[in-house]
Amino acid sequence: MAQQEIIISGFGGQGILSAGRLLAYAGMLEGKNVSWLPSYGPEMRGGTANCHVIISDDPIGSPILNSATTLMVMNGPSLDKFENIVESGGIIISDSSLVTRSPKRTDVKVYEIPATQMASDMGNLTYANIILLGKFLEVTGIISKEAFEQALRKVLPEKYHYMIPDEMKALEAGMKY
């Protein structure tokens, strides 16, 4: 795929922005052009948070997305807000532990994963976003597991590097689901 346009959306504090940064960083390590644009409005404090990530073989025009090839949602309002801007043939990945309804679209591939429940079972709620990213990596294949692990090393402060093996386990759990 020449260009992946991803919108990640959920509540502030679910790791929405950092999931986007991880994707962008991993994309860069794969030698792609990338951009990451957060919603930086009042939403940052507790409300909904979203970010736009572009991973492309070509130079990126606008970093602002009017449509997306992939939508990753971690709450109901986000699905309501963004479901319709996914391109036909695109992907919706939804955290079914928190998003109670299924997407209505029939022209896109839908993956519903109880990521928050799985993360809870693994003992750390903050892995939910990684689990969903696992599914994205598996479906699109644009980022290798190795690049993702390297991105984790770059993005996470060194004191959290001990968590990387568990995070990679979460990623694999998502890929396999």
């Binding site: 052009n33 990338v34 951009s35 990451w36 644009l37 970093p63 602002i64």
Partner: peptide
């Protein structure tokens, strides 16, 4: 503007 200030690129 805010987009340029807040966005990440390589």
């Amino acid at each position: 503007d805010g987009i340029l200030g807040q966005m990440m690129e390589t």
